[in-house]
Design a protein around this nucleic acid. Structure first.
Lengths: 212, 212
DNA sequence: CCAAAAGTGGTACGCTAGTACCAGATTGGT
DNA sequence: ACCAATCTGGTACTAGCGTACCACTTTTGG
């Protein structure tokens, strides 16, 4: 504790909730997006003050100005990325509902489910994308402050998948979905451990055997 | 490259394979065991030169003397820990075979399988032990040099589980075991993400539903 | 219009990491 | 017994981290 009395006007402590100025808000958002990119590219370890600031084209101090700690920045990045992915999934569902009678083929449905669980950029991105995704999942266990967020987004993903399967004419119970998600996740984790170069392929085989 | 010519007698480069003296070998082993403990307690991040040296009661420089890099130390620690666990599992199998006719109850069998997959210190240790175990699994994906080792030990674990189930009178095919392992792993990972306080309990429910 | 609040950015501090260095002690083969 | 190989351990170097500091400029509300 340096000087417990001072702190004249510095908002460094509590009030880092949000910015108060349009430009400030834009900067704050730029930092969140930069952090989110780094999260996808290099995992939690990639979110560092200097890296985020550089990526956003802002000075180092802006990161401590808008976020009281690195944890807060991480949390915002995870939330931003998760909600972006969920929005992508909802778009796919909407497309599905819109196109009406023409059903998805079984293969197309499989790929869609894999997109939702492994990340839709895993179609060509290959290993790294999936690895980082699961690092992120397990890493959340070390960051209890992320738990409510992860739970909420996990539930949304679950519900979205149930809806998609129903829409595609292959309905599945909630319990069945929990089980399917666990099976796919476990398959991917085991593929990653063994340095399998195609975890999505492994997941695909399991998924195909599981869908009716 | 500092001085490409010198290096009079320093074995710092290649020859860190093993020590040549009994005392040296003992020290080297002490370092591996210390690193292994740290791995279990704090994950890969816990294996650091200073921490390992302190745990082993040896000077800092001993870690760089016996291991050419931190990676080599990590690899030895993972191997030591993995083989210790496999040995524990084989002991259980031997006990099972020895006790002959008196079969394991279904519940006992379940717990044994959970011991093998989540670590037998997860019976009471609770969250951390399991979390660290799965951090370690996913973390191996980032360390390609561990891949052969992880694959080998994974295969041994797989085979051991098949043997145990056969011995316990609930035989399972190899493919079935692959699937069961994935299912349990996925269940645990999802429990960890949601900050479930009892991942072993979640795994137990799934396992019970899966065993005949 | 003008104080006060908000935002800006260059810089520095304290810490910990991996690793290098090297003079001295110990040890093993001949 | 001796000399070279091996081992020992204190110390120091560089790099990167999170964070603090503070003079300055811009924006905002009354």
């Amino acid at each position: 504790m340096p000087e417990p009395t001072e702190v004249p006007s510095a908002p460094t402590q509590e009030r880092t909730g949000q910015a108060s100025t349009p430009k400030g808000e834009r900067r704050r958002q730029a930092l969140v997006e930069a952090a989110s990119e780094l999260l996808v590219e290099s995992g939690f370890a990639g979110i560092r003050h200097r890296a985020v600031a550089e990526r956003a084209g802002l000075p180092l101090a802006s990161t401590t100005y808008y976020f009281s700690s690195i944890e807060e920045l991480v949390e915002r990045a995870v939330e931003y990325h998760g909600r972006t992915e969920l929005a992508w999934g909802r778009d796919r569902l909407a497309e599905l509902a819109e196109s009406g009678d023409e059903r998805l083929s079984r293969d197309e449905l499989c790929e869609l489910v894999l997109d939702m669980l492994l990340g839709h950029n895993s179609r060509d991105g290959g290993l790294d994308v999936v690895l980082l995704r699961y690092e992120r999942l397990v890493g959340s266990g070390r960051r209890p402050y992320l738990a409510p967020l992860m739970r909420e987004m996990g539930d949304e993903l679950h519900a979205l998948l149930v809806e998609i399967l129903a829409q595609a004419g292959a309905p599945m119970s909630s319990a069945g979905m929990t089980r399917l998600i666990a099976l796919i996740d476990g398959t991917v984790v085991n593929a990653l451990i063994e340095a399998d170069t195609d975890p999505r392929g492994a997941a695909r085989r399991v998924l195909r055997a599981e869908l009716p």
